[in-house]
Write a protein that binds this DNA or RNA. Structure first.
Length: 425
DNA sequence: TCTGGGGTCCTAGGACCC
DNA sequence: TCTGGGGTCCTAGGACCC
């Protein structure tokens, strides 16, 4: 059977681990640049705040209700995620890390009492990491997802919902809105509702052939999964990425190319590190710049360009150089750039790396060694990222907003929490 | 004043080949 | 005058996910 573990309001829960006084209070976590609410505690949801709300629009009201807002602290969240996954690995035959806050578990039927197992597992994750999770267990991943929704929604399940009979399956499908099914997005939901299909059960009872003709192979897969036939392929932990992007919105519009150069070099630096972490090299790089699409009083400009690299690269200086070359061709004076980014594509592994005919192999080896040394130095916990390209300037610090940042409680020694102990009477 | 970032898969259609 | 048939590869865009 499959289990699906979903961390409840994950980013909010991470912040609460280190600020337990916020448990039971309304809390939201914001996207980059303090732009939108991306994670909300149940209390914040109950007040009517929604995922995606622009912060500047809800700020006054949030303050009035005493909502505590955090800028996104993704280094903290990914470290907390790793802790949760470590526990899960000890409790299942195999796990597939599906996202920062979710994992599928492959469960041994010999476990026997799955209900007891589920309760014990969710309690253990909570105890060992501080993160509350919901677990769904069923014959297919899509059904396990539905189970986890029930576990989250109804306290009676005590964080774990088992769907192990046809009776339970049909009941669960009947109570699930079609748009809440994994794989049914906004467009498909709209089309189904127009046909009178509003529950997962109604969808599962459609004719398979009809579903396949109307919604192609992906829709058919969802249909089969809902009917108990597992057909979502397994992705063993962390498959290599095929593309990588680094992009940001800025706190203010950028009118000086020099300022944007710093951002581009920072994106190149981030991508270089990500490529080397995955042991990949890129054969193509592209960049985009965009004005503020929400501001219609301002001339709009969006452009993108790409560059084929003569050989697969993963070293920061080469990527940064390419980024700046592209920026020069994208730049137009007079437009205020609000957002920009870089994508690397056509990734290849170290083994599949084919240098160009005229490459200086000594030079390639030197660049590899240089990056390895740089990464080693920069990953030191005492002084992370101390060696940078001068062209990066102060990175993204000055050009993005993060006014509500929490500390790096788990990865920076100087940010560790202080505990005040009082002598008992 | 202020509106996120990072991915994957599938399909249709064009380019190209014999 | 008459203008085929069958296939692959690549890419952009749509849809979906977190």
């Amino acid at each position: 059977m499959f289990g699906l573990v979903d961390c409840n309001n994950f980013f909010v829960s991470c912040e609460r681990v280190f600020r337990p006084s916020l448990i039971g209070k309304p809390v939201i976590v914001l996207s980059n640049n303090d732009g939108c609410a991306v994670a909300l505690s149940n209390e914040a949801k109950a007040l009517g705040f929604k995922r995606g709300d622009p912060y500047f629009k809800i700020k006054a009201e949030a303050n009035r209700f005493g909502v505590v807002a955090f800028s996104g602290n993704h280094r903290l969240y990914s470290d907390m995620s790793a802790r949760v996954m470590t526990v899960l690995r000890e409790e299942a035959i195999e796990i597939e890390v599906y996202s920062v806050d979710e994992a599928f578990l492959h469960l041994d039927p010999a476990i026997g009492d799955m209900t007891a197992y589920g309760h014990r597992l969710t309690r253990r994750v909570r105890r060992d990491t501080g993160i509350p999770v919901s677990l769904g267990i069923a014959d297919t991943k899509t059904l396990a997802k539905i189970g986890s929704h029930f576990a989250k929604k109804y306290p009676g399940y005590k964080n774990s919902c088992l769907i192990d009979s046809d009776d339970k399956r049909l009941k669960a499908l009947n109570l699930t809105a079609i748009g809440d099914v994994w794989g049914i997005g906004r467009r498909t939901k709209r089309r189904l509702i127009d046909q009178g299909i509003v529950t997962a059960l109604q969808f599962a009872q459609l004719d398979r052939q009809d579903v396949s003709e109307q919604f192609t192979i992906t829709g058919e897969r969802t249909w089969r999964e809902l009917n108990g036939e597992p057909c979502i392929p397994e992705e063993w932990s962390d498959p290599d990425k095929h593309t990588m992007t680094s992009s940001r919105s800025f706190a203010h519009d950028i009118y000086e190319i020099e300022e944007l150069k710093q951002a581009m070099c920072t994106f190149a630096t981030i991508l270089g590190r990500k490529l080397r972490e995955q042991n990949s090299y890129a054969l193509e790089i592209s960049a985009f710049v965009a004005t503020n699409r929400f501001n219609d009083r301002q001339p709009q400009y969006f452009n993108t360009t790409s560059l084929s690299l003569p050989e697969p690269v993963a070293d920061t200086p080469t990527l940064a150089h390419a980024a700046i070359t592209m920026l020069h061709s994208l730049w137009r004076n007079g437009y205020g750039i609000k957002k920009a980014g870089i994508t690397v594509t056509r990734l290849t592994t170290a083994e599949g790396r084919q240098p160009s005919l005229f490459a200086d192999l000594n030079d390639l080896a030197k660049r590899d060694r240089l990056m390895e040394t740089l990464d080693n130095i920069n990953s030191s916990p005492e002084n992370p990222n101390c060696i940078r390209l001068a062209a990066m300037g102060n990175g993204l610090n000055d050009i993005t907003r993060h006014e509500h940042a929490s500390r790096l409680y788990t990865t920076r020694l100087s940010d560790i929490i202080t505990i005040n102990c009082k002598r008992g009477s």
